[in-house]
């Protein structure tokens, strides 16, 4: 069996996001990393691998810099690294077409990804890829294991938490789990540096991505809030409650 994990290279969540000329200024981002939920997907994929289910292929799609997240995945145990290289920004439809083609090429039975990426915050990719490759999709999962040929996932639904089973092919989108994420050791880091990254272009995958169907008009910083008012001590609580009623009209 092959397990694929989709990892996206995004600004670390503590990075400041600045905007220049109507676009998020990627050059000013101080630290890039694997998107947080993808780390949980990666950890779950590593656990499946450790339990002998199969080998692990990490796939990313993005510009040259994003190869780094594959090396991070290799350092904790990814066996094969696939980088779909596209320098220009893509919309979700294009990303899904490319990732789906790479997943099919790797003949993965299970595809693990994040419930949403830290930059787009969308949550389109997992269900979209599932649709394209004809797989089932289980969303908002915190844990997985196998039982025979089935995958058993703990997921959150509007009515609570449940354990569900699903057969391959399947896409699982990950939420934050309660498992500790493993950190790479020195040996892992050294090995990862030497590991080959398979670089593929859209042409290599036989995908013609066309032009984006969504055009980004502008990015802007979030609207400035008027400076807040600060009060000292618990005896200011009645004043604040009064303001919530009279100024803000929220209670």
């Amino acid at each position: 069996m092959t397990i694929a994990v989709l990892v996206k290279h995004v600004p670390d969540t503590t990075s400041k996001i600045s905007v220049s000329n109507g676009r998020v200024d990627e050059a000013s981002v101080s630290k890039w990393t694997i998107s947080p939920y993808d780390e949980y997907a990666l950890e779950a994929a590593l656990q499946l691998k450790d339990s002998g289910v199969g080998s692990l292929v990490a796939i990313t799609c993005g510009p040259t810099r994003s190869a780094k997240c594959l090396t991070e995945a290799a350092a904790v145990g990814a066996d094969e690294l696939i980088h779909i290289i596209v320098e220009e920004p893509l919309d979700s439809t294009q990303v899904q077409a490319l990732l789906s083609a790479a997943v099919s090429r790797s003949e993965a039975d299970w595809v693990l990804c994040g419930k949403q990426a830290a930059d787009t915050n969308s949550g389109s990719t997992g269900p979209g890829v599932a649709r394209i490759i004809g797989a089932a999709c289980v969303g908002i999962v915190s844990e997985v294991c196998t039982e025979g040929d089935d995958l058993v996932a703990t997921r959150s639904t509007p009515s609570g938490f449940e354990r569900v089973s699903v057969q391959p092919p399947c896409v699982i989108t990950f939420d934050k789990g309660s498992t500790e994420l493993r950190r790479p050791n020195v040996r892992g880091i050294m090995m990862a540096k030497k590991k080959e990254v398979i670089v593929l272009t859209p042409d290599d995958l036989g995908v013609s991505i066309g032009s984006p169907s969504v055009s980004i008009d502008s990015h802007s910083p979030p609207p400035e809030k008027p400076p807040g008012q600060k009060f000292e001590g618990a005896n200011s609580v009645p004043t604040v409650v009064g303001k919530l009623r009279d100024e803000a009209n929220v209670i």
């Binding site: 969540t13 998020v24 830290a118 930059d119 969504v214 055009s215 980004i216 802007s220 979030p222």
Partner: peptide, 14 residues
């Protein structure tokens, strides 16, 4: 909102 509200995106889609 994108980047968890750290930026706002304006886009056109047909």
């Amino acid at each position: 909102p994108i980047y968890s509200g750290k930026a706002i995106e304006q886009a056109t889609v047909s």
